[in-house]
């Protein structure tokens, strides 16, 4: 369950000007739901995802995930929360291009100091799930956009988190790869994961797997 209460988020620009990205957002996402946040660029969709992932803190208001007030979490607890509960697929994937597919995917596990066997098990699960076993040792910078996205999704799922957040996931993909991504979403939803997608790609609108579409306009829910 994800709940945003009266969220206001302001950014400082150049250290002087203040831009209000979110203006009193209230949002409730049930467990297992797939919600699409739609709206133009700069409307505040990505900011909402950032707040849910505890990547930033709201200026005011509360973000509650599975009963925890994550907007109040100290930095290290926020990191733990992301590690265990959130799988974030970034718009530009945010992979480390000079690392291999395998190294990128297991990156969230590195600080956990797990047994090698545990890591291998988790890795092989996501490699199979997202059909990238054959690319395991390739450098990410040598992959196509679609392949890079699958690596990003695999990394987001390595810890089998309950919540998947995807920010403009099809912005850099052609239609065929975008449809493939939607297939992946179907699989994740079938596993019971809570999914929030921020997009302005019409391909997502009216999809039968989407439970709700929420339009964001200039920092408010329309």
């Amino acid at each position: 369950m994800i709940e945003l209460k009266e969220i206001i988020k302001e950014y400082q620009v150049n250290g002087i000007d203040t831009v209000m990205a979110l203006r009193g957002i209230n949002l409730y996402v049930r467990s297992g739901e797939l919600v699409v946040l739609k709206g133009a660029s700069g409307s505040g969709k990505s900011t909402i995802l950032s707040l849910i992932a505890a990547l930033s803190k709201p200026t005011s208001g509360e973000v509650i995930v599975n009963g925890d007030r994550i907007s109040k979490l100290p930095d290290n607890f926020a990191s733990d929360f992301r590690r265990h509960s959130i799988g974030f697929v970034f718009q530009k994937y945010n992979l480390i291009p000079t690392l291999s597919v395998k190294e990128n995917i297991i990156l969230p596990l590195v600080p956990m100091n797990l047994e090698t066997r545990d890591i291998e098990d988790k890795l092989s699960r996501v490699l199979k799930m997202f059909h990238i076993e054959h690319k395991e040792n390739q450098l990410v910078k040598n992959l196509s956009g679609g392949e890079q996205q699958r690596v990003a999704i695999a990394r987001a799922n390595i810890n089998n988190p309950q919540i998947i957040l995807a920010d403009e996931p099809t912005a850099n993909l052609d239609e065929k790869l975008s449809l493939h991504f939607i297939d992946i979403l179907k699989e994740l939803k079938a596993e019971g994961k809570t999914i929030v997608v921020a997009t302005h790609d019409p391909l997502f609108f009216g999809l039968n797997i989407v439970d709700r579409e929420i339009e964001i306009y200039q920092g408010s829910i329309v």
Binding site: S79, R83, F88, N94
Partner: peptide, 19 residues
């Protein structure tokens, strides 16, 4: 900086990065 941001975003703590 970006690499540190990515590490933090995927669940590394500040002390993991510093270590």
């Amino acid at each position: 900086k970006r690499e540190i941001g990515i590490l933090k975003a995927i669940g590394w703590r500040v002390n993991d990065v510093l270590r």
